[in-house]
Amino acid sequence: MKQSVFTIESNDRIAENTFRMALTGDTSAFTRPGQFANIKLDGFYLRRPISVCDYNANGLILIYKTVGEGTEYMSQLLPGGKLDLLTGLGNGFDTALSGENPLLIAGGGGVPPMVKLAKTLIAEGKKVTAVIGFNKASEVYCEDALKKLGVNVFVTTADGSYGVKGFVTDVMKSLDYSFFYTCGPLPMYRAIRKTVRTEGQYSFEERMGCGFGACMGCSIKTRSGAKRICKDGPVFDSAEIIWEEPKK
């Protein structure tokens, strides 16, 4: 983990309630796709965790949805502004597990980390397929970014206004893959779990106090005991996860 100040290069709306922010700064603490940054915002006590969508030696890309006051505030920041980030947080996806033709599955706010993951897998010579799901056409993003990398991309929308009508699981059924990586909401995970035919890795979210393992705010029970989503995760192997039924 590192703490450093980044400069905002651009901050643009790319879909409904969805923004893409490019920042320059010290990215040396990032070692894997699926890691995240914890962002200090003026006027908010806790930092906001956002996955790193893509990064290189000079900067990084964040894609975020405006869901509350913090992300709303972020969407109004202008190029040239500075942001204090904790970088290189979390374990990230393990691309060594992927096999020859991995499948990436993402829903809504879970799509961003798939970009760097796809880039890494392709650089390692793997054949990558992605299924990304949204509610409706106006929310779709990252399709082109993934296609440009050479990923075979399927888009689903719940209302059928773009791509395949339905959910990511409707497309997955007819695909062949060696391993899967997924990021998205819990209801999507419950459906995926019943559909997948291989091992895989799931990325989890929780409200965080620190984001680097100090407060026990983000604990999850796994088959190898209590883990912290921010430090031992956010990515967990499918075999590790204990699936609890949704609370009423």
């Binding site: 006027g43 006590y45 806790l46 929780e206 409200r207 106090g209 705010g217 983000c218 604990s219």
Partner: peptide
């Protein structure tokens, strides 16, 4: 969880 909440002057745990 959730075990954490925020408020302007700090946090709850």
């Amino acid at each position: 969880t959730p075990r954490i909440a925020e408020c302007p002057g700090g946090m709850l745990n």
